[in-house]
Write a protein that binds this DNA or RNA. Structure first.
Length: 370
RNA sequence: GAUCCCGUCGGCUAAUGGUUAGGCCGCGAGGCUUUCAACCUCGAAAUGCGAGUUCGAUUCUCGCCGGGAUCACCA
């Protein structure tokens, strides 16, 4: 069976640096095994999904050279298929309508929490037959009550979760649209994904996804949950830790190979080697070398790598990139000194192309403050 | 709170049931350089704690502590 991996971001914001590292691992694993890398846009949340964000994902992936073999697929274009599975499950009893209102659910959750329990749906609509006046029902998956789910994770090892810990999750909202955990498994199954490589935060979703896959009559894929990237304070990397938008790094004058190289070494290593080209990574990457512990984002090391690549990159390409950088700031490269000279003068002292452009700006006739 | 995951220098990490626990970033000192950067040399710096197994644990087991994730009609 040929390896198929997928990167499945939701287009609700910028292309996040953490997401890109996951995408990189998916890409490397597929390439390493001569398989395919699929891009899928998870846009079922129509409120928050934007075209702008879709563009950012495509733009960022292309900039980094992480080319996909199939897609992008959009979940919003697959609603008929989800409906089909929903109807089938409603038919055969693997799913059912639940008429509890949001308010009722919230109240019960609150109670359980106060009682020191894990908040869970109590299954009260499981055997309900009649509709409820004035309530549009959601659809829930009938999760097995007994037994346990065993995940054999490529980086975590064996993780076992009792079904008693799980509840019947909502797979379609009262407006009929399907929800995340459900669309994921339908898509992974339909798209023949063999290896699901994703963030750690999905580990606890995995048991219920496996249960749904079984309900679909499909053998679950292999899983690999990679650790998250943390900010300097130990919490999940976010905007307040600095730039998390991949495209910001392009704007700030980082080379894509530097960012990729930095990211691959976060949670993965190959002996003492620090410098890896994309080809190196493809031939060396293995999930068994991925660390189980979370790692902290370190901007200084990224800068060091960027400078390394600036020092070693051909002058031609650097000149082109520098020209783009200058143009981006409203300067016409032909008004200034020969770019090759600039590159050679600054390649040992500029950490970013942006810095190089700033150092050059004063040489322009119509100087503009960057 | 419940469940699950994680724990080697300040950060990223390597290694092994027995090494002076290695490398990279950063940091400090020195060298080179008119200066800065780059570059070179040297240095400080870690196995969370407590038991157990063992001739010997950083490595295997358990407990503790610490951190994280999840528990949505978000993804």
């Amino acid at each position: 069976m040929t390896v198929r991996t997928r990167f499945a971001p939701s287009p609700t914001g910028v292309l996040h640096i953490g997401g890109v590292r996951t995408a990189l691992f998916c890409y490397l694993y597929a390439r390493r095994h001569g398989g395919q890398f699929v891009l899928r846009i998870e846009d079922t949340d129509r409120e928050r999904s934007t075209q702008e964000s879709v563009d950012a994902i495509l733009d960022g992936m292309a900039w980094l050279g992480l080319e996909h073999d199939e897609g992008p697929f959009f979940q919003t274009q697959r609603f008929d298929r989800y409906r089909e599975v929903l109807d089938m499950w409603l038919q055969n009893g693997q799913a059912y309508h639940c008429y509890c209102t949001r308010e009722e659910l919230d109240a019960r959750r609150e109670q359980q929490r106060n009682a020191g329990l894990k908040p869970r749906y109590d299954g009260r609509c499981r055997d309900r037959r009649e509709a409820r006046e004035g309530v549009d029902p959601v659809i829930r998956f009938r999760n097995p009550v007994e037994g346990a789910v065993r995940i054999n994770d490529a980086v975590r090892g064996v993780v076992t979760v009792a079904n008693a810990e799980l509840d019947d999750l909502i797979i379609a909202r009262s407006d009929g649209t399907p929800t995340y955990n459900f669309t994921v498994i339908v898509d992974d199954a339909d798209m023949n994904i063999t290896h699901v490589i994703r963030g750690d935060d999905h580990l606890s979703n995995t048991p219920r996804q496996i249960n749904m896959l079984h309900a679909l009559g499909v053998e679950p894929p292999s899983y690999a949950h990679v650790p998250m990237i943390l900010g300097a304070d130990g919490s999940r990397l976010s905007k307040r830790h600095g730039a998390v938008n991949v495209l910001d790094y392009r704007e700030r004058g980082f080379l894509p190979e530097a960012l990729i190289n930095y990211l691959v070494r976060l949670g993965w290593s190959h002996g003492d080697q620090e410098i890896f080209s994309l080809d190196d990574m493809v031939s060396l990457f293995d999930l068994k070398d991925v660390n189980a512990a979370a790692s902290t984002f370190n901007p200084e090391k990224l800068e060091w790598l960027n400078q390394h690549y600036i020092q070693h990159e051909h002058g031609d390409r650097l000149s082109e990139l520098l020209a783009a950088q200058l143009e981006h700031h409203g300067l016409d490269p032909s008004d200034g000194p020969p770019l090759h000279d600039v590159v050679e003068a600054y390649r040992d002292r500029a950490v970013t192309l942006r810095a190089m452009a700033e150092s050059t700006a004063y040489l322009f006739a119509d100087e503009i403050a960057l």
